[in-house]
Nucleic acid binder design. Structure first.
Length: 116
DNA sequence: ATACTGACTAATC
DNA sequence: TGATTAGCCAGTA
């Protein structure tokens, strides 16, 4: 199982109306130090039906910087889901994805199973 | 193999 | 608190 595929998988696991951080995703992929690679992965595979708008940095800042072809697209998508965005930032305390231990375990097991 | 890059983070000031 | 610095590591040239 490729790291990028894992990233895609984890992103699709993020619940509607929640956001996750790069570091969080990297951790769930089994590579806690690969936060940057997560961003790189999303950049490469934005077309792959990955809800990348639910991914922000550890401060809750939106990626902005032309990550999405249309400016404010990420912000709009989040607001549609009920996530409040202020000054290109979201409140991780309220909207951050609190991944449960079960979800983490499920993903880990899934990865190990498909990795072989 | 070396050097540089970057949708990141954690540690210092 | 807010700004800087210093690690990080897969990709790319």
């Amino acid at each position: 199982m490729d790291f990028y595929q894992r990233v895609a998988r984890v992103c699709r696991t993020i619940p509607y109306g929640r956001v996750a951080t790069y570091g969080q995703i990297a951790m769930l992929c089994g590579k806690p130090r690969n936060a940057r690679q997560v961003g790189y992965a999303l950049n490469r595979r934005t077309e792959d039906k990955i809800p990348a708008h639910r991914v922000v940095n550890h401060q809750g800042c939106l990626s902005g910087a032309g990550a999405f072809a249309v400016p404010d697209l990420q912000k709009r998508l989040l607001e549609i889901e009920g996530v409040v965005v202020n000054e290109d930032q979201v409140d991780l305390k309220k909207f951050g994805w609190k991944n449960t231990l079960e979800e983490a375990t499920l993903l880990k097991a899934l990865f190990e199973e498909e990795q072989i």
